[in-house]
Amino acid sequence: MNVTIVDYKSGNISSVINSFKEVAQNKVKIEVTSDLNKIKSSDKVVLPGQGSFKSCTDALNGINGLVETLNEFVINNKKPLLGICVGLQMFSDIGYEEAETKGLGWIPGKVTKIDNQNGKYKLPHIGWNEINILKNSKIFKDVKDKSHMYFVHSYEFVPNDKSTILATTDYSSNHVCAVEKENIFGTQFHPEKSDKIGLKIINNFINL
């Protein structure tokens, strides 16, 4: 089996690479590439994302054929994909960070700034927060409700279809921190930085 981490030159993905390699050891091949053929032929894909919604979508669109390849992988071939942080946010139709920007449209909804109640809550939402698991998922196998995950973000994904929500977290309000729609998985938090429990999620994804 091989898992491809999409390297589309947006943000720092070394922690994602290190964590997947740690979990995979030598049993699963971890590729880091933007090569379209390699993505097509992989079994699973990881879509990381750091920086703003706009900078990430711009970077995705900047690689000729990448969005089409990902669409084919996810929508036509129904192969598993994990989006992390802005990687998850890009599943939406539209994001409002920096400028109104079109997303991939895989899970209808929008990405808006966390309402910090006039400065009552500091942004970014940085640090360890508990997740409220709402639904069973293969990626949460052996992950307990109220587990701590590491977050860094100022924007939240608001999906139209609430049944896609796997987990939420509380910061200012109750917002979405994990989603699942058929073969599409996403976490707003960083499993790669969430210690052993985060590595478990990565392991669960690899073993889907």
């Binding site: 922690s15 290190n18 390699k21 740690e22 590491y150 930085k193 210690d195």
Partner: peptide, 8 residues
């Protein structure tokens, strides 16, 4: 270190 520690 980043290959051994999975916290920020």
């Amino acid at each position: 270190t980043s290959k051994k520690c999975f916290v920020p």
